[in-house]
Deep mutational scan, measured.
Amino acid sequence: MQGVVKVNSALNMRSGPGSNYGVIGTLRNNDKVEIIKEVDGWYEIRFNGKVGSASKSYITIVN
């Protein structure tokens, strides 16, 4: 499943599904990500070869 980031500035990509996990990357508006699965309001995603988590509130699913 594919998604597109929708933010005003930037979205942190984290090492796990929650804001208490470390930041491993930064996503910008309109970045395209691969959604692997949903976990507690977060998506596990793949972006630029990295796997991490980002809040699903800022990612829109595209077909």
Rank of each mutant, 00 (worst) to 15 (best):
residue 30 N to D: 10
residue 9 S to F: 13
residue 45 I to L: 08
residue 45 I to T: 00
residue 23 V to I: 13
residue 2 Q to V: 14
residue 19 S to I: 14
residue 56 K to F: 05
residue 3 G to F: 06
residue 38 E to I: 07
residue 10 A to N: 11
residue 6 K to F: 07
residue 3 G to N: 02
residue 60 T to L: 12
residue 10 A to T: 14
residue 48 N to I: 05
residue 23 V to R: 05
residue 15 S to R: 08
residue 32 K to Y: 12
residue 4 V to L: 11
residue 22 G to S: 14
residue 25 G to E: 11
residue 20 N to Q: 14
residue 19 S to D: 14
residue 19 S to Q: 13
residue 63 N to I: 12
residue 44 E to Y: 12
residue 28 R to Q: 12
residue 26 T to P: 04
residue 39 V to N: 08
residue 28 R to F: 12
residue 26 T to V: 14
residue 37 K to A: 13
residue 49 G to Q: 06
residue 30 N to Q: 08
residue 52 G to K: 01
residue 46 R to E: 07
residue 1 M to C: 15
residue 37 K to C: 13
residue 20 N to I: 09
residue 18 G to Q: 02
residue 17 P to D: 03
residue 11 L to N: 02
residue 55 S to T: 08
residue 45 I to H: 00
residue 25 G to K: 05
residue 53 S to P: 02
residue 12 N to A: 15
residue 32 K to R: 14
residue 51 V to M: 09
residue 26 T to Q: 12
residue 3 G to C: 10
residue 16 G to P: 02
residue 55 S to R: 15
residue 39 V to L: 10
residue 49 G to E: 07
residue 42 W to P: 00
residue 55 S to E: 15
residue 49 G to K: 05
residue 49 G to T: 04
residue 37 K to D: 11
residue 15 S to T: 08
residue 18 G to N: 05
residue 7 V to W: 05
residue 33 V to I: 07
residue 9 S to P: 06
residue 6 K to S: 10
residue 16 G to Q: 02
residue 54 A to I: 15
residue 57 S to Q: 15
residue 14 R to H: 15
residue 8 N to I: 12
residue 3 G to Q: 02
residue 17 P to G: 04
residue 5 V to W: 00
residue 25 G to T: 09
residue 49 G to C: 08
residue 22 G to L: 12
residue 13 M to D: 00
residue 33 V to Q: 00
residue 10 A to H: 14
residue 58 Y to D: 10
residue 52 G to P: 01
residue 59 I to L: 03
residue 19 S to T: 14
residue 15 S to V: 07
residue 1 M to L: 13
residue 20 N to G: 12
residue 37 K to Y: 08
residue 24 I to W: 01
residue 12 N to E: 15
residue 61 I to L: 11
residue 34 E to D: 11
residue 14 R to L: 11
residue 29 N to G: 06
residue 44 E to Q: 12
residue 10 A to W: 15
residue 56 K to M: 11
residue 3 G to S: 02
residue 8 N to C: 15
residue 32 K to Q: 12
residue 40 D to K: 09
residue 56 K to P: 04
residue 34 E to W: 14
residue 6 K to Y: 07
residue 31 D to F: 06
residue 41 G to T: 06
residue 17 P to Y: 03
residue 50 K to F: 10
residue 54 A to P: 02
residue 25 G to R: 04
residue 43 Y to S: 01
residue 29 N to P: 10
residue 19 S to C: 15
residue 41 G to E: 09
residue 43 Y to V: 04
residue 36 I to P: 01
residue 51 V to F: 09
residue 30 N to R: 08
residue 13 M to Y: 06
residue 24 I to V: 11
residue 46 R to C: 12
residue 7 V to S: 13
residue 55 S to C: 15
residue 23 V to M: 04
residue 59 I to F: 05
residue 52 G to S: 03
residue 13 M to F: 11
residue 58 Y to V: 07
residue 37 K to T: 10
residue 43 Y to I: 03
residue 25 G to V: 08
residue 22 G to Q: 14
residue 44 E to L: 15
residue 21 Y to L: 03
residue 32 K to I: 15
residue 7 V to L: 05
residue 48 N to M: 12
residue 38 E to F: 05
residue 43 Y to E: 00
residue 53 S to A: 14
residue 16 G to L: 03
residue 13 M to L: 13
residue 62 V to P: 07
residue 6 K to H: 12
residue 46 R to N: 09
residue 18 G to P: 02
residue 41 G to C: 08
residue 22 G to V: 12
residue 36 I to W: 05
residue 19 S to V: 14
residue 6 K to P: 01
residue 26 T to D: 04
residue 8 N to S: 13
residue 9 S to D: 12
residue 5 V to R: 01
residue 13 M to P: 00
residue 7 V to K: 10
residue 58 Y to N: 11
residue 50 K to C: 10
residue 11 L to P: 01
residue 42 W to Q: 01
residue 19 S to M: 15
residue 22 G to K: 14
residue 54 A to H: 03
residue 47 F to C: 04
residue 55 S to H: 15
residue 26 T to L: 13
residue 1 M to K: 12
residue 22 G to A: 15
residue 16 G to E: 02
residue 51 V to D: 06
residue 9 S to R: 14
residue 10 A to P: 12
residue 24 I to C: 08
residue 54 A to M: 07
residue 63 N to Y: 11
residue 35 I to A: 00
residue 9 S to M: 11
residue 8 N to V: 12
residue 8 N to K: 15
residue 18 G to M: 01
residue 27 L to A: 02
residue 46 R to Y: 11
residue 54 A to W: 04
residue 62 V to S: 09
residue 27 L to C: 05
residue 25 G to P: 02
residue 32 K to S: 09
residue 9 S to C: 15
residue 17 P to H: 04
residue 56 K to T: 10
residue 17 P to N: 06
residue 15 S to F: 06
residue 61 I to T: 06
residue 56 K to C: 09
residue 46 R to P: 00
residue 2 Q to I: 15
residue 33 V to G: 01
residue 29 N to W: 08
